[in-house]
Every structure is written in structure tokens, then in C-alpha cells.
């Protein structure tokens, strides 16, 4: 592992993405990518009584699913990098607390997942960990509540306004495997257009 150029890290033994899992909401399920998701929800609350709890449940079930799919036992996972859009990363914090995993809370807005993947890869490459997990979640309703307006507010959205994903994704990074591999990482300098 060495630094190349100004802001790139190249790996000598590229870590591999061992397994991935994703759970998404009803709007994502209508799109062309629906068949690639592990689970599509019909209800944005998923039986909970707040959007924040629903988001926690989504991330919890996604992590559960990725561990299940990888056929690893849970205590093989050394570290977990997780983050979301809410204050104090509550959906990750509450979603992951039952797993009893060492947890790094990260925040990178849109880039949280790749940020987690980068850090997990560095941990695996440096032999600090054999298996690291990275995960992130967002929920349209909780993000609107946190950053924009209440859903019941009668305002108009521009045709090009963005729509925050309801869903979560998880990946397990391992030192060896079939690939795909993380060969190098280049974090961008934070000087324009958000994250």
C-alpha cells in the first residue's frame, strides 16, 4: 500500500469485495434496477412508527443479509464502517448495535458508502482486519425531514430535483477472494458541489 501522486492510495494486494446486499424502498423497486436488489419493500414505514426507525431496520436487515450471504460467522467481521444522513448517524448506530461489532461512524453525504469501502480496504490491506464490513443507508422521508421540508407541506419540486434513495447497501471486504477488487482509492478534494 503506497501513496501515488497527490491523493491516491494504491494497494499491493488488492482487497476484494466478498459479498454485497441491498434492501430498497417501493420507489426504487419500480425502477429498472429492481431485479438486482435483495429485497424491495412495499411500505416506507416497514411496520415501524417513525421513518428513522424504519431506516434503522433497513440497515440492520441489510447487514444481517450480507453476513448471511457471505456464510461467515458474525464474529469473523472485525470492523464495521457505517454512516447515514441523519443527526449523529442514528440509523447506523441503532441499526448496528445488536450486532456487537466494533463500529466506526462516518459521514460523507452521497459518498458515505465509498468512504466506508475505502477505509475498510485500507484496514484489510494493512492486515488490521481480515474481514471489514461497510454499510450505509438513507430514507427519502427522514432525509426530507432532516434537510428540507415536511412531506405534508404543499410546495412544488422542480422537475430536476433529486430524490433521496430509500434503502441500504452493505459490502464485506476481505483480503482474498474472487473479486471485484479494490485496486486503488482516490478521495476527492472537498471544494465544490457538495460531496
Amino acid at each position: 500500500m503506497k501513496k501515488v501522486g497527490k491523493q491516491t492510495i494504491c494497494f499491493d494486494n488488492p482487497p476484494t469485495i466478498l459479498e454485497t446486499a441491498s434492501i430498497v424502498g417501493p420507489k426504487e423497486a419500480e425502477g429498472p434496477l429492481a431485479k438486482y436488489f435483495d429485497q424491495c419493500l412495499e411500505d416506507e414505514f416497514w411496520g415501524e412508527n417513525s421513518w428513522e426507525k424504519a431506516e434503522s431496520k433497513i440497515i440492520k436487515n441489510t447487514v444481517h443479509k450480507v453476513i448471511q450471504k457471505s456464510k461467515l460467522s458474525q464474529d469473523k467481521i472485525d470492523f464495521c464502517f457505517a454512516g447515514d444522513l441523519l443527526n449523529q448517524c442514528i440509523s447506523s448506530g441503532f441499526g448496528l448495535r445488536d450486532f456487537n461489532l466494533p463500529y466506526f461512524g462516518i459521514f460523507g453525504a452521497c459518498s458515505t458508502f465509498v468512504e466506508g469501502l475505502s477505509l475498510a480496504s485500507i484496514f484489510v490491506e494493512s492486515k488490521a482486519s481480515n474481514y471489514s464490513l461497510c454499510t450505509t443507508s438513507s430514507h427519502f422521508c427522514s432525509a426530507e425531514k432532516q434537510f428540507r421540508f415536511p412531506l405534508e407541506l404543499g410546495n412544488q419540486r422542480p422537475q430536476t430535483s433529486q430524490w433521496t434513495v430509500t434503502g441500504a447497501g452493505s459490502a464485506i471486504v476481505a483480503s482474498s477472494g474472487q473479486g471485484p477488487f479494490v485496486t486503488s482509492i482516490t478521495p476527492r478534494k472537498n471544494y465544490r458541489h457538495g460531496n
Binding site: 412508527n49 417513525s50 421513518w51 425531514k145 415536511p150 405534508e152 407541506l153 404543499g154 410546495n155
Partner: peptide, 22 residues
């Protein structure tokens, strides 16, 4: 059309109240 009359003002108070009830 619905924002400018007093209806819009009522909506702007009720909607956060509903949103933050949780």
C-alpha cells in the same frame, strides 16, 4: 394558488407539527 391565501400559512404550521410528532 394554495400557498398565498391563508390556507398555505395554515399548512406550513400543521405539516411540521405532523412531521415532528414522532
Amino acid at each position: 394558488g394554495s400557498l398565498v391565501p391563508i390556507t398555505g400559512f395554515a399548512n406550513s404550521i400543521v405539516s411540521p407539527a405532523m412531521e415532528y410528532k414522532s
